[in-house]
Structure formats: C-alpha cells, structure tokens
Amino acid sequence: MIALPLAAVIGFGLAAIAAAFVALVTRTTPVAVIAAGLVSLFASVIFLVLAAPDVAMTEAAIGSGLTTFLFFYVMGRIRREGGNDQ
C-alpha cells in the first residue's frame, strides 16, 4: 500500500512521459501540439501534489491553454498560405 500522493506523482509522471513520447513520434504536427499541451496539464497536477498551487494554476492556464492556441494560430496562418505543416 503506497501513499496517495506518491501514487499520484508516479501515475501522472508516467502519463506526462507517455504524452511527451507521443509528441515526439507522431507524424502530424497538430497531434504533437495537443500532446505537448497534455504534458503541461499532467505537470500541473504534479505541481499540485508537490504543494505548489500557484504554480499549478499558472501552468494549467498558460502552459497548456494559451501556448496550444499560439501554435494553432501559427499553423492556421501557414496552412492558409498553402504550406503543408506535416
């Protein structure tokens, strides 16, 4: 029986690493961007377990929210001008 915080850190850490792996090996850029956002989201749960609620809020709002949208805006501009962003 391991303690709940330890289990949470192990589980979400493995999930973050798996999402990072998906971001590295996938063929399409949108999937990679979404996976990178997921890495940030799992990392924000790890911050919460490590008793850092301020950092968890910032990471969830900025790291996984706004950054993903910046990527999608740039990908949209590139696609509209006829590039393939694969």
């Binding site: 850029t29 990178a36 911050f47 740039v74 962003d85």
Partner: peptide, 25 residues
C-alpha cells in the same frame, strides 16, 4: 520541421519547471 522543434522546446521547458518545484518540496 521547425514547429516540431518548438514543441520539443516547450516539453523541455515544462521538465525544467518540474525539477525546480521538486527541489523546493
């Protein structure tokens, strides 16, 4: 692909933040 390189940088950025917070715990 340049965009994929930037995705890699953001993942490394998140990793640095996790290391720093865990030092303070």
């Amino acid at each position: 692909n340049i965009l994929r390189m930037i995705v890699g940088f953001t993942i490394a950025d998140t990793g640095v933040n996790v290391v720093l917070v865990s030092v303070g715990y």
